[in-house]
Design a protein around this nucleic acid. Sequence first.
DNA 1: CTTATATGCATAATTCACTTATGTATTAAT
DNA 2: ATTAATACATAAGTGAATTATGCATATAAG
Lengths: 110, 110
Amino acid sequence: MHSPELLKGTLQTIVLKVLKDHGRMYGYEITQRVKELSEDRILLTEGALYPTLHKLEAEGMLKTETVMLGKRVRKYYALTPEGRSLVKERVSEFVEFIRTMGNVLQVELH
Amino acid sequence: MHSPELLKGTLQTIVLKVLKDHGRMYGYEITQRVKELSEDRILLTEGALYPTLHKLEAEGMLKTETVMLGKRVRKYYALTPEGRSLVKERVSEFVEFIRTMGNVLQVELH
DNA sequence: CTTATATGCATAATTCACTTATGTATTAAT
DNA sequence: ATTAATACATAAGTGAATTATGCATATAAG
């Protein structure tokens, strides 16, 4: 990603929305999905992703299910009803932010 | 502003673009212009604005002119040629970021 | 066959752009 | 007279991120 500064504050929004669109997912899968959707421009780091997932779980926005794959562990995350509300909030907040920035920067976005 | 986290990394872009569109401006004037353009949603704090202006000046992106208004000081900032290049870069970087986020979040931005 | 890469989770240490707090000073309004 | 607005500046503190580290299995390459 060119300018990682811009990404700040968007991590929760990204994780929540991807989970909403894709259903249950595990951490590594989320990083790969975001990489794919962003055409390699957004590479989530583990140091940011896992603490965010844990925090959202602690707040009751996500529920987890741990699955053993042979000897490997995989932890699936899915939205709770409260999480589903939060996604809507976060996404519209982001859209609102973009609209405001469009006005300030006087640029057409699409 | 609702979520100040999203604003991170946009300060330089905002300052540079507003200066490009308006010509020479002083610090306080920039805060007021941004407040106006954003309909009170983006309120630049002095603790962030002045260090940013100083940094951009030190990097040769801005040139200054200090004017005395009776006993008051006013410091005008204007883009240098290098600053003019930087604005284009920063703005297209932001537009690119928005496009990417639109793909990841699967939202239409106007 | 052993080495690198990919998969998979987790957390501690560090960074750095920002907010908050503080300071100085003039002018206009109530 | 006191408050709010104008106008600049910088130091201290915060917090979400990056970087670094650790553990462990699976697979491809050489």
